[in-house]
């Protein structure tokens, strides 16, 4: 039951990663690419958690937490750069 659900979920989230990647490469503007990166990291968290369920292992949670933290800081820093042309003022 869970196995089938995981298979479906891996396919869907994999496609979602592909879409985000397409937007990352295609642009056309800088905020679009930031949005694509943002989506990409959230998708990656989902993939990691799904992998954790699949392998029955709890250790992927720490990686997911770290990606969430770093991804948010990265998005904020990139937006700040676009807004001010500088990150640390």
């Amino acid at each position: 039951m869970i196995h089938t659900a995981l298979l479906v979920a891996f396919t869907l989230v994999g496609l979602a990663v592909a879409f985000a990647f397409w937007r990352l490469l295609h642009g056309p503007s800088a905020p679009d690419r930031i949005l694509a990166l943002d989506t990409l990291y959230v998708n990656t968290i989902a993939l990691l958690v799904l992998l954790g369920i699949h392998l029955d292992s709890n250790i992927y949670f720490e990686a997911a937490l770290l990606i969430a933290l770093m991804g948010f800081v990265g998005t904020v820093a990139l937006c700040k750069y676009l807004l001010r042309g500088d990150i640390i003022e």
Partner: peptide
Amino acid sequence: MDLLIAFLIVTGAAFMFIGSLGLV
């Protein structure tokens, strides 16, 4: 319980797919 977990996993994945579809 398995049913609930499977349902949550598929719904979540479907939402992520739709969200990224919107991106494209």
